[in-house]
Structure formats: C-alpha cells, structure tokens
Amino acid sequence: MSDSDSNKLSPTAHYSEKKHIVPTERCGPLSVYVQGDLSQQDKRAIFLTVHDLGCNHTSFHDFVEHPTMAEIKERSVFIHVDVPGQEDNAPDLADDFQFPTMQMIGEDLVTVLDFLHIKYVIGLGEGAGANILLRFGMAHASRCLGLILVNVTAGKTSVMDYFKDKFRNWKLGQVGHNPTTEQYLVFHKFGHQLAQENDEVIKDREKTILDYQAKLRSAINAKNLKRYVDSFLNRKDITGVLEKNLKIDTLLLAGTKGSYGHTVQHLHTMMDKQKTQLLKIDDVGDVVNEAPEKVAQSILLFCKGQGLLTSVAMPGVERQRTFSGGESAEGPQLLRQRTMSMEEYDKPNIRRLSITAIQQKPGE
C-alpha cells in the first residue's frame, strides 16, 4: 500500500450517530445526523457540516472517524445535514416539490440549530455545501462562531461550467444516471487527477473513480441529485457582498493540484483579510480524502483561535508534564491553571478571535 493509499478515508463500518427529521420552512423535512453527545454541548465544540454534490453526510462522517480526528471527535459534536433528497437510497422527491436555492438552504439551516437547541456552531462544508454555509454565515452570524470551507465557490462561474449546457438536457429516469451526469460529477470531484499520467497515479485514479461511480449508482437517487446540481449551477453570485456582510472568521482550504485552487485564491482576495485565512495544501486536489491529517490540523488550529478545543494537543506535540514535586516546568502559576478539567478548558469561548497559527505563503 502506498503512502497516499494509507491517507485515504476508508468506508465507515458502522454509524455512531442519531438521526433527526427536522421540518423547515422552505427546504421541507431535512435528515440531520448527530455524531457525538449533544447533552454535553456546553463543553464541546459543535460543528455543522454540509456535503458536496454527488454524496451526502456520510462523507463527513467518514472523515470524523479517521484516526487523525480522534481527539477532536472526543471533544466535539458533529451535526451532519443531508441536502433534500440526497440521503442513501432516498425516494424520488415529489414532482411538485420546489427544490430550494442555495440561499434558501443556507438561511433555513438555523432551524436545525433551533430544533436541536444548539446555540453556536462552526460551519464545515465542501464544494456546494461550502457555498451553502457561506450564506448561512452571512444570514446568521450570531449563531456561527466561524466557517471552515473546502473548495468553496461564491461566484456564478467556475471550472465546471464547461458542462453547464449539457446538464440542461439531462434525462435522468428510473434506471439511473446519464453518462453525462457522471462525467460532470467525476470532473467536479477528481478534475485535478484527470490530467495526471503517471502509471501508479492512473491505477489509483481509476480505482477511486470506479468506487465513486459505484456509490453514485447504488446509493444516490439520480433524479434528486440532478435537482441539487441544478440548484448549484443556478446559484447567485455573492462574491461582491462577502467583504461587507461576512462578519465571522473563515478558513478557506484548497489543494494546490485541485481544480478549485485558483477559484478559492481569487475568492480570498475579495474577502475581509482580517477575518479570512487561506490555506493551500501541497500536492493534493481532494484535500479531505487525500490529506485528512492536514485538514484535521487546520481545523484544530482554527478552533483554538476561537477559544475551542484548547485542551487538544497539536499532532506531534506532547502536553507538558508536571514534576513529581508538584510544580510544572513553566512554574506554579501554570500548574494552578491545570487544575481546571479538560471539559472546562474545552468550554466554548464565543469571542471572535482571528486565527494566527495558519499563515498564508508569500505571494499567494
């Protein structure tokens, strides 16, 4: 097994989560999955996740189950939202159901927080889900401590618009996905790999894409997926209002080999630099699956900047040990501070603090 293989997320064997059906005003009933002990929310970091096209909440569930997320998972609760009709083996959405816009979904997410009696969350989204969370963050800044967004787009155009006209003529029936559908989604998720011709890369790429296509065909409702994609392709441009209206700390993540690298970098130039950080991860495109350790580290640094997960040690850094005599290496003052419990250390601090641990490379 190659190093890159060992980094990739493996399918989840079982689900330690509780499902809720949350009625909303414009999105209909949303399937929401709570991963963690919500009764401990005052002592935990609470994440709200929204998934990308061609998948559902299981993509983030699998990421949370990755070993590198173990300490974060232990002290957090993850609220995973499935966009309407995207659940595994979901029935067809009713013909008279008006699929919500990206803006409607973003605004209605606050209903999930109210339903579960959650005060504040950190938004964690990818692709189309990241676009939804941008809108949520602007609409409900008082309920959102910050945003961590992977491969986010805010404009109306993107590298995927090459496929836009083809998608207007989709004919998805009961039998499953039109080949053009899969081409679009494969490009959306794996476009960074399609131009690589190294033999080992080609072999890995083909297996990954085949696994992804099998998941699409076996679990994702094709007609419902088309409606999510159409909503994403018809999104309104919010780039021009971000600097003024997005008031919360935001971390943008992208891979240097990804199709979205330049898009995310350009978006960063349009945002408030005092509240926004850009992190580009080298040598990957699909950052969550190809570099989960670096994503986990970035999440932890961001949360520490918000006063969350302060007792979780950074990977490779051991917590200071106390001497047998009772004093720590840093002196008695720090030892007295450590009489607080881990849970007290982890209690959320809702002050808006800018992340300083992740620095943008010169010239980016």
Rank of each mutant, 00 (worst) to 15 (best):
I46C: 13
K273Q: 12
D3N: 11
E343F: 04
K171Q: 10
A13D: 03
N56G: 14
Q360V: 07
F97G: 08
Q193I: 03
E71A: 15
E197G: 01
T276V: 15
F99L: 02
D42T: 14
H14A: 12
K73R: 14
E200T: 13
Q193Y: 13
S298V: 02
Q359M: 10
R319D: 08
T111P: 00
A214N: 11
K247H: 12
D237P: 03
K304V: 00
P348R: 04
I350A: 13
V284K: 03
G173E: 08
F163H: 14
K203N: 04
E87A: 12
Q41D: 02
A195Y: 05
I209H: 01
F163W: 15
G85K: 05
D62P: 02
K207G: 00
F63T: 07
V83S: 03
L279A: 05
G146Y: 02
D37W: 00
Q35E: 12
L335F: 12
Q86W: 01
G261M: 07
L116Y: 06
Y212V: 12
N349K: 14
T310Q: 15
Q277N: 11
Q40P: 01
G127I: 06
A13E: 05
G255H: 03
R44M: 12
L53M: 07
T180W: 02
K189N: 13
G316C: 09
Y184G: 07
G146E: 05
D37S: 05
R26I: 01
K203A: 12
K347R: 12
F323I: 06
K280Y: 09
S341W: 01
F232H: 02
V152L: 06
Q274R: 15
K280P: 02
D37P: 01
Q274N: 15
P348S: 01
R338H: 06
